[in-house]
Every structure is written in structure tokens, then in C-alpha cells.
């Protein structure tokens, strides 16, 4: 008999378990340290408060998107949904003369309805969410232009409305930070502590197994896409309060940023899973990079490049580490 070649199976050892869970948090701390060393202004209380205020809109939008991704669906319409709700709230107050709460309520409702439509397209017509929400983006933008003719809505809003962006709770904590914290907490509890959240996560992990476990997977996906649009619409309203005008294209950049934040978050805490806490880390990283590069006087195009690189890095890490259903 000819020579026998025997090879021994080597067991994969989880050396980097800790690194896998907290590597992204470590990266956030590292980025913070680097910018702190490079610029004294970066660590000043006013700048840190500034960063937190800047990322509050992104936090709200990304938290909603996280719920969609956790349930296995993409939502590529968040940017345009945010934009639509942003101009709606401006128009409803200044053109229609509605009161602040009614205007806010209606504009968030309008955005949420688009999320329901997304959900119906995905669950009833069985269009992959990637396609359905990709198509919903331009539809939302079209509605946006139809409403405002493509022009910004410049008027002064009721003073109380600006409080959403510039007010302080107890005279110290900026309102947008409080809103972001409340939204993050609510979505965290939803995903981790509720029956619905468990069902959403199960659906996102294995649709087939979830169905065979008696979970109503279509209901889960519909709710997830609705919540995603709800977060986007809320973010849109906050954005208008901050900008002081209703700008048709204001939401545009939030799609890319929120996706990047969610993907970054998938590399933290529970590798491969979209989590609200992970997304928050992702948002903070993006916020620090934006602000820090600005302070260091980096050329404007650098921010775009960094964004692209961070997204690629995040996705490749997320794919490497976990079993994720990407498209």
C-alpha cells in the first residue's frame, strides 16, 4: 500500500473573542485619543457637547435602521424619508399654519406611512427590501419636490420649534442629546426586552427557522421597516429644527452615514448582529471623525474618502466575523 497521508484537523481557537467584542469600542477610544492629542480643542467640553449635538440626528435615524437590519431587511430609503419629513414639518408650520405638535406629528406620520408601504412591498409583493426601499427613496424625493417645488422653505418658525435643536433641559443638557438618548433607550429596550424584539431578531437570524417556530415573520418585517421609517422621519424633523429651514436635499447624506453606523455597530458587542448599542458606537465614531478632521483643517474631500473607507472597513469586518445575510 502506498504511503498514507494523514493530516490532523486543527480546531479554530477563539483567541480574539475579547477583541471581536470590544475591538470597535477600542477603535473609538483610539480615535478619540488621537484627535485629543492632535488638537486640544477636540477635548474641550464645548466641542464634545458640539459633537453630541451634531450626531443626535444620525443617532435617531441609525437606531431605526438598526431595527430593520436586525430583522434581516435593508432600508435604503431612510435618507429621503428624513428629507421628506423635514420639509413637511417646515411647510406645515409656515405654510399651513399648523401648531408645532400637529405639524411634527403629521410629518412623522407621513414618513412612517412610507415605511409601512416598504413593509407591504416586502411582505406582500415579496420584493427584496434592498430593491423596494431603493425604489422608495426617489419616490419620497419626488413627493418632497412636489411639495416644495424643489426650493428650500425659508421662514421663521415658532420659537418653540427651535428648542428641539438649541434648547437645554434643566438649562444644561441640549435637547437633541436628550431626544437621542431617549430614542436609543427605547429602541434598545424594544430589541432586547420585548417579545416583538426577540421575534424580530430571530427573523433576521433565520427567516425559515423563525417561521417554523411559529413566529409571524411578515408581521415582524413590516414592523421593522415601519420603525426604520419612523426613526428616519423623526431625524428629519430634528434636522429641520437644527438647520432652521426646510431643505429638500437635507436628508440625502444620512443614508450613507446611517448604514455605515449600523455596519460599524455590527462589529461590536455581538459580532455579526445589528444592535442598538453597537450602532451608537458607530455613530460616535463617525461623529468624531467628522469633527476631528474639521478641527485639524483636513481638506473637505477627505471627509468623503474617510466615510467610504470606514464603510468598507466596517462591512468587511462584519462579514469576516459573523454569518450575515448581506443581500
Amino acid at each position: 500500500m502506498s504511503a498514507t497521508i494523514a493530516t490532523r484537523h486543527s480546531r479554530r481557537v477563539d483567541i480574539g473573542q475579547l477583541g471581536a467584542r470590544y475591538g470597535t469600542v477600542g477603535a473609538a477610544i483610539l480615535i478619540f485619543a488621537v484627535f485629543a492629542l492632535a488638537s486640544a480643542r477636540f477635548v474641550s467640553p464645548s466641542n464634545i457637547s458640539n459633537i453630541l449635538v451634531q450626531i443626535s440626528v444620525l443617532t435617531v435615524i441609525s437606531s431605526g435602521l438598526t431595527v430593520a437590519v436586525a430583522s434581516g431587511e435593508f432600508d435604503l430609503s431612510v435618507g429621503q424619508v428624513a428629507g421628506l419629513s423635514g420639509v413637511l414639518v417646515a411647510g406645515l408650520m409656515s405654510w399651513s399654519g399648523l401648531s408645532i405638535p400637529v405639524a411634527i406629528g403629521l410629518s412623522i406620520l407621513a414618513g412612517t406611512v412610507l415605511g409601512i408601504v416598504n413593509g407591504v412591498l416586502v411582505t406582500r409583493l415579496r420584493i427584496p427590501s434592498l430593491i423596494a426601499t431603493l425604489a422608495m427613496g426617489p419616490i419620497a424625493l419626488g413627493l418632497n419636490y412636489a411639495y416644495d417645488g424643489g426650493d428650500s422653505i425659508y421662514t421663521s418658525f415658532p420659537a418653540m420649534f427651535y428648542a428641539i435643536a438649541t434648547g437645554h433641559v434643566l438649562g444644561v443638557v441640549p435637547v437633541p442629546i436628550v431626544i437621542a438618548i431617549v430614542v436609543v433607550a427605547a429602541f434598545y429596550v424594544l430589541v432586547n426586552r420585548t417579545r416583538l424584539g426577540r421575534a424580530l431578531v430571530a427573523t433576521g437570524s433565520n427567516l425559515q427557522a423563525a417561521r417554523l417556530s411559529g413566529i409571524n415573520v411578515n408581521r415582524c418585517r413590516l414592523i421593522a421597516l415601519t420603525l426604520s421609517a419612523f426613526g428616519a422621519a423623526m431625524g428629519g424633523v430634528m434636522l429641520t429644527a437644527r438647520l432652521g429651514t426646510g431643505q429638500p436635499g437635507a436628508g440625502e447624506s444620512y443614508l450613507m452615514d446611517s448604514l455605515t453606523a449600523v455596519f460599524l455597530g455590527m462589529t461590536a458587542f455581538k459580532p455579526g448582529r445589528a444592535t442598538v448599542q453597537g450602532t451608537l458606537v458607530g455613530v460616535i465614531i463617525i461623529g468624531m471623525l467628522d469633527n476631528g478632521l474639521n478641527l485639524l483643517g483636513a481638506p473637505f474631500y477627505m471627509q468623503n474618502e474617510v466615510r467610504g473607507v470606514v464603510m468598507i472597513a466596517a462591512v468587511s469586518l462584519a462579514v469576516l466575523r459573523g454569518e450575515i445575510r448581506f443581500f
Partner: peptide
């Protein structure tokens, strides 16, 4: 792996997937 296990989820999440209403 295709039809019963929730990859990446914990033992607890896997065990309770069929009785979410009962534990809530």
C-alpha cells in the same frame, strides 16, 4: 442549520423562539 438554528443568537434566544408569548 437552514431551518431550525438561529445562527449567532444565544442558547436562550434559540430555546425561547417558540414560546415568546408564554414568557412575556
Amino acid at each position: 442549520l437552514r431551518k431550525a438554528i438561529f445562527r449567532g443568537l444565544s442558547v436562550e434566544e434559540n430555546l425561547l423562539a417558540g414560546s415568546l408569548a408564554q414568557v412575556s
